[in-house]
Design a protein around this nucleic acid. Structure first.
Length: 619
RNA sequence: GGGGACGUAGUUCAGUUGGUUAGAACGCUGCCCUGUCACGGCAGAGGCCGCGGGUUCGAGUCCCGUCGUCCCCGCCA
């Protein structure tokens, strides 16, 4: 027999009562978290989003209420009114914030029962994710999920408040928009009114926010859902939330200041202090020092130890002397067994002639002088592991494409392979060197970095042409306009000067994760046309894809630029979570399925017919 | 599209070289218990071993297929 809520009014949340509340009459409402039945004495831990309070029923106080409470089971929803009592000294629970008090009940209303849930929110052991996602409403009752979602709110609010205070307007842009075939696959929405045509869900509000600058809003931001129909990963969902912003008349540094400002506010909201300004690094330097464009600064950089060997040494080792010899130092790994050292080679994914050479210990036995020089140059300490990556002499010097870049493709192969191995080694020995901890002080070692001056174009080996590395609205570096001019007709030529054009693009990186990406945009129609031409697009093609935007550019577009950061990833890192699913209330599985609502589903023929769509049954 | 791991009670897991009736813990049900807080004690219920096929006298275990979840590569301007 269930009770109605009636006019009973909640006075306190379950997690807030303290010794100072003793003697007060209060009304609490929540879920039965745990029940401890001692016969004539019954304890209920009552839970809401703020925490848990112990509620006591005993026959001495009220026989009838005690009897009613006997029917309570886990996850029943109840209201209790009563008096806050100080606990006796010997019954205080120091492990809970409300552990000095308990509630002596005058009235119990059972507001709802619960079926036996597949798992209990109070369980410490984690249920498998499939069950958690199917019963997400129960999973979200767990304190960790409550904490993560609450943190998400606080972080978003801190960012919203900061940007508002800096003069940014929060402006909405359409979810039903135009498909642009570049980049990620679009999610499409069929139009009923215009049969055979489709809207696309935005991969980002890129062109709208640029148009808002053309429209004179000066500073725009939006915490906005974006959609990409690509395969998922632990850190990639098909719909995700971006902190998207754009501003007029900025240098890149002005954008960075804004980002550093709101990240400081966001991290403070989660109880963390971070230092600004963030260090900055050219793309080329990131590749040379870390072999990746999103370096994790918690790990040591590479050392080029080519000069530690004599030419004869290099020849004996079949190392290409024209390419760097990378020493990867992984700290505090300790003495490795023969087998552990053998296991390193299979972790290595060679690109274009790169080879992993004998580890430091083996080199040291054969070439003691070289080993001593390497140890000195790479500042090795006791227990550090050194692994060498170099170009294979057999594979040749690979000078087919010297190009105009500072890092040649042959070098890139070495750096890139070494970069992957560096991370694999760090991951493998993470426990020993204590770097990738998800909890405690080590988890709060936040190393931010701006990576700047990305190449404007990247050679696409499949298409045999240069493609936009960031997106085609990114401004080339002022100083590189000549190179663009020179290369504008040579999109199919791997030797084109396009390879040397730098973009005014920047990524903000945190501990090896790309948090966000932005650029100063092109605001002049003449430069925009050149970029499209350099990308091999005819005027007609450009017009049919982006005509509205190119036209808008011609009506007095101010210089502008901006950035977008992944809110989910920021919260994931702050929460110490391994997956975005831990910070998104209703996420999708690796096959992009929502297990709770069971989406996507087939739809009826009538619905399809209205949309002018016919689907042949598969199989 | 490719590679890998996993799937046994409501939940987390164990299950030997293929061999009688598939186990444990938690949870659940009933009884007992007035100071517990992961309460305790006694008793009990609960299994399409993901699904389908095959090998075998005999399959949770071996083989093939399939479905699902997770991780990675490709992909993500």
């Amino acid at each position: 027999m269930l009770d109605f809520l009636g006019d009973l009014r909640r006075t306190h949340m379950c997690g807030v009562l303290r010794a100072s509340n003793a003697g007060q009459k209060v009304v609490l409402m929540g879920w039965v978290n745990r029940r401890r039945d001692h016969g004539n004495l019954l304890f209920i831990d009552l839970r809401d989003r703020t925490g848990v309070t112990q509620v006591v029923f005993n026959t001495d106080r009220d026989q009838a209420i005690h009897e009613k409470a006997g029917a309570l089971r886990n996850e029943y929803v109840i209201a209790v009114s009563g008096t806050v009592k100080l606990r006796d000294a010997n019954t205080i629970n120091p492990n809970m914030p409300t552990g000095e008090v308990e509630l002596a009940v005058d009235e119990l209303r059972i507001l709802n029962e619960s079926k036996l849930p597949p798992f209990l929110p109070s369980d410490t052991a984690l249920t498998n994710e499939e069950t958690r996602l199917k019963y997400r409403y129960i999973d979200l009752r767990r304190d960790v999920m409550q904490f993560n979602i609450a943190m998400r709110h606080k972080v978003a609010k801190a960012i919203r408040d900061y940007l508002s205070a800096q003069g940014f307007f929060e402006i909405e842009t359409p979810f039903m928009t135009r498909s642009t075939p570049e980049g990620a696959r679009d999610y499409l929405v069929p139009s009923r009114v215009q049969p055979g045509t489709f809207y696309a869900l935005p991969q980002s509000p890129q062109l709208f926010k640029q148009i808002l600058m053309i429209s004179g809003f000066d500073r725009y931001f939006q915490i906005v859902r974006c959609f990409r129909d690509e395969d998922l990963r632990a850190d990639r969902q098909p719909e995700f939330t971006q902190i998207d912003l754009e501003m007029s008349y900025p240098q890149a540094e002005r954008v960075w200041e804004v980002v550093e400002g709101f990240l400081t506010a966001a991290f403070a909201a989660a109880g963390n202090e971070i230092k600004t300004p963030f260090p900055r690094m050219d793309y080329d330097e990131a590749i040379r020092l870390y072999g990746i464009d999103k370096p994790d600064l918690r790990l040591p950089a590479f050392t080029d130890v080519r000069d530690c060997f004599t030419p004869e040494n290099l020849q004996e080792l079949a190392i290409n002397a024209n390419l760097p010899v990378i020493a990867i130092r992984t700290p505090k790994v300790g003495e490795l067994s023969r087998k552990e050292r053998d296991d390193i080679k299979p972790m290595f994914h060679a690109k274009g002639g790169a080879r992993v050479y004998e580890d430091f210990k083996r080199i040291g036995n054969k070439y003691p002088d070289a080993a001593a020089a390497i140890a000195k140059k790479s500042a090795i300490e006791d227990g550090d592991l050194i692994v060498l990556v170099a170009g294979s002499a057999q594979a040749g010097p690979q000078t087919a494409m010297p190009a105009h870049r500072k890092v040649t493709p042959a070098e890139l192969a070495i750096y890139g392979s070494a970069g992957l191995l560096r991370l694999a080694l760090a991951q493998k020995y993470a426990e020993k060197h204590g770097i990738f901890k998800k909890t405690g002080d080590a988890a709060k070692d936040y190393r931010f970095l701006w990576v700047t001056n990305f190449p404007m174009f990247e050679w696409d080996e499949g298409e045999k042409q240069w493609m936009a590395a960031h997106h085609p609205f990114t401004s080339p570096h002022d100083e590189d306009m000549g190179l663009l001019e020179e290369g504008v007709e040579s999109v199919k030529d791997p030797q084109s000067t396009l390879s040397a054009v730098r973009a005014l693009a920047y990524d903000v990186v945190l501990n090896g994760t790309e948090l966000g990406s932005g650029s100063i945009r092109i605001h002049r129609q003449d430069i925009q046309s050149k970029i499209f031409r350099a990308l091999g697009m005819t005027e007609e093609e450009a017009k049919s894809r982006f005509g509205f935007f190119l036209e808008a550019l011609e009506y007095g577009t101010p210089p502008h630029g901006g950035i977008a950061l992944g809110l989910d990833r920021i919260v994931m890192i702050l929460a110490g979570a391994e997956s975005l699913r831990e910070v998104i209330p209703f996420p999708k599985t690796a096959r992009a399925v929502d297990l709770m609502v069971d989406a996507p589903t087939p739809v009826g023929e009538k619905q399809l017919k209205e949309l002018g769509i016919s689907v042949k049954k598969l199989g």
